[in-house]
């Protein structure tokens, strides 16, 4: 009869025996050797009945379809842009996917996204050879201007975002910063300089303590301690005001960001709508 040798949330190292016996099943991050199930990577053990898997704790980002990431433009080619995705593979942003606007034939693409710009984009396809396609047509997908970029462990991103974005919303509201978290571990923070600092510290604290419990309370405590009382009040009021305006500003953002040089912009809206 099989026996599971690890407890939930045990830290396991490659080669560790997680379970013995053929009635236990290997899942993500594990493999079978003889009768044993062993760990194939460093991480936290997860036991679901007779199935054992591993949640990774470290490692670089691997592009996955459907992920929203923050990427950097590092080359401009005939048909679009090449993006650095903070992974082993670059991504391709096609002209059609870059903006809802009309781009004239032969237009200078650097006027839309220049080298070194950061953009929020969504991965639409990843091939077996890891050719990555991204799109910027969708809500919240835009070029990032100003602010600061920090890098965190991509496996800690879900913890930083929190359940339904609870953690990041809390930091946003407390510091009155705009924060965008990419699945690839890049985080953009923009606000008042000293509030940016606190937001970044809070995010880094969340990253460092991601594998421990009661994280939200500790981050809340950290924010309360570090933000002066009057600033807290002010940020709270602003956050409330902004959340009521949010929908409006989002649409505004989208309409204004792209292709400032193309005067045919507005006239060509129908071009997209027809499709």
């Amino acid at each position: 009869m099989g026996e599971i040798k690890v407890k939930e949330k045990d830290i396991v190292v490659p080669g560790d025996i997680l379970a013995t016996g053929m009635d236990c099943l290997p899942s993500y991050g594990t493999y079978r050797l003889g009768d044993d199930i062993r760990a194939a990577r460093l991480g936290l053990a997860k036991v679901e009945g007779k199935v054992v898997k591993i949640t990774s704790l470290s490692g670089r980002y691997i592009p996955k379809r459907g992920d929203t990431i923050i990427a950097k433009i590092y080359d401009v080619i005939m048909s679009g842009w090449l993006l650095d995705t903070n992974s082993a593979y670059h991504a391709m942003l096609g002209m059609k996917e870059a903006t809802s606007r009309f781009i004239q034939k032969g237009a200078d693409l650097t006027r839309i996204y220049a080298l070194g710009d950061y953009v929020v984009c969504k991965i639409t396809n990843v091939t077996s050879q890891k050719l990555v396609d991204v799109s910027m047509r969708g809500p919240g997908l835009r070029k990032l201007e100003g602010g600061r970029m920090i890098e965190v462990n991509t496996h800690k991103v879900p913890r930083i975002i929190g359940k339904d974005g609870s953690m990041v919303t809390m930091i946003k509201n407390a510091t009155n910063c705009r924060i965008t978290v990419g699945q690839n571990g890049l985080i953009w923070v923009s606000g008042e300089p000293d509030m940016e600092n606190i937001a970044i510290q809070a995010i880094q604290k969340a990253e460092a303590e991601a594998h421990t419990g009661g994280l939200t309370d500790r981050i809340k405590g950290f924010l309360d301690k570090n933000i002066p009382k009057e600033a807290q009040e002010k940020n709270k009021a602003k956050a409330q005001q902004e959340s009521s305006n949010e929908e409006e500003s989002r649409t505004f953002d989208r309409d204004n960001k792209f292709d400032r040089d193309n005067r045919f912009d507005r006239n060509n809206r129908f071009d997209r709508d027809k499709k």
Binding site: V13, P14, A40, R41, L42, S56, L57, S58, G59
Partner: peptide, 10 residues
């Protein structure tokens, strides 16, 4: 292993 590379053993 620390880099999270999938590996069968140390």
């Amino acid at each position: 292993a620390d880099a999270g590379i999938p590996m069968k053993d140390l």
